[in-house]
Structures are given as C-alpha cells and as structure tokens.
C-alpha cells in the first residue's frame, strides 16, 4: 500500500470532515477535499520523514482549507446545505437515521460558525486526536489546546442548545 493510500485509508474520512468544517456548499467541499489530497500528494516526500503522520496530514488539511476560504471570500458562495453531503450510515431505521443525520448537520453547521482557531481544535478533538497531537498539528502548546477546546465547548453548547 502506498503512503498516499495509507493516508487516505487512515485519515480520508477525517480530512473530508475538515473540508466540511470550512465549506458548506457540497460541491465546493468536494473541490476543497481534492485540493487537500493534492497538497498531501505533493508533500509526500516531506511527510515520509515525519515520525507521526496524523498531525502533519491534518496541518496540511487545515492550512489548505484556510487558503481556500481566503480565496473563496471574493466569490459568491452557493447556499447548498452540507447535509447533501452526509452519506448513509448503518441505517438502523429511517426515523433514527433522519434524526442522526439532522444532529450531524446541526453540529457541522455549528462547527463552521466557530471562529477559526476554535474550529481547528474542535475538529481535531472530534477526530479523537490527543491534545499533544493537536498541539503538534496546530503548532501551539498543549495548554493552549485545552483553553481553546474549553472556549469552543461553551460556544458549541450555546449554539446547539
């Protein structure tokens, strides 16, 4: 399995969700995901030298997304909902699947409304990354990660209440 294939198999879903945390429009999410994969592909020689891949793969994803959003500011964004992009899960029953999808949609929407610095830590935390790796990915101290996560939690609580 090539390094890129391994990265996609291990972090692909997480990278897709990072793209969704920056871009609400389903088609633009797809473009952003493609740009993230391309950036990772180009950075493979440097990535192979890293001991741990996750922090750097996610760092590329966030930085590429920041740069994408900066470029997107000038163009008119579509109003398509991110819910279009939520794929089918285990489908326990149509009703519970709909409720779960609705909750996921509300969460994604709330995460997108967080300020950039809080959005970055929360998306990585929700991907099960430990504080040390989040700190490495964002190049901040672990205590700073804790502070940002706390603030992000408060904001999310208010938004989802």
């Amino acid at each position: 399995m090539s390094t890129l294939e391994r990265i996609i198999s291990d972090y692909g879903q997480g990278l897709r969700r990072v793209a969704a945390s920056y871009e609400a429009d389903a088609m633009l999410q797809e473009d952003l995901f493609q740009e993230i994969l391309l950036a990772i592909h180009q950075a493979l020689p440097a990535l192979r030298e890293k001991e741990r891949l996750a922090p750097y793969v996610y760092r590329i994803a966030h930085n590429r997304s920041v740069s994408h959003v900066a470029k997107a500011v000038g163009r008119k964004k579509g109003e398509a909902s991110a819910a279009d992009d939520v794929e089918e899960g285990q489908e326990p029953s149509p009703e519970s699947a709909m409720i779960a999808s609705e909750r996921a949609h509300r969460l994604a929407d709330a995460v997108r409304r967080l300020p950039l610095t809080y959005r970055q830590v929360v998306t990585l935390y929700l991907e099960e990354m430990p504080y040390a790796e989040i700190a490495e990915a964002l190049d901040i101290s672990p205590s700073n990660v804790g502070v940002r996560i706390n603030r992000a939690k408060q904001m999310l609580k208010e938004m989802l209440a």
Partner: peptide
Amino acid sequence: LKGDWQSQDADL
C-alpha cells in the same frame, strides 16, 4: 458529539 461528527462519512 463525536458520534454525530464521525457519522458524516463519504465514499472514498
């Protein structure tokens, strides 16, 4: 929230 977050998966 992790469950809801990670339920957003796509065909890769």
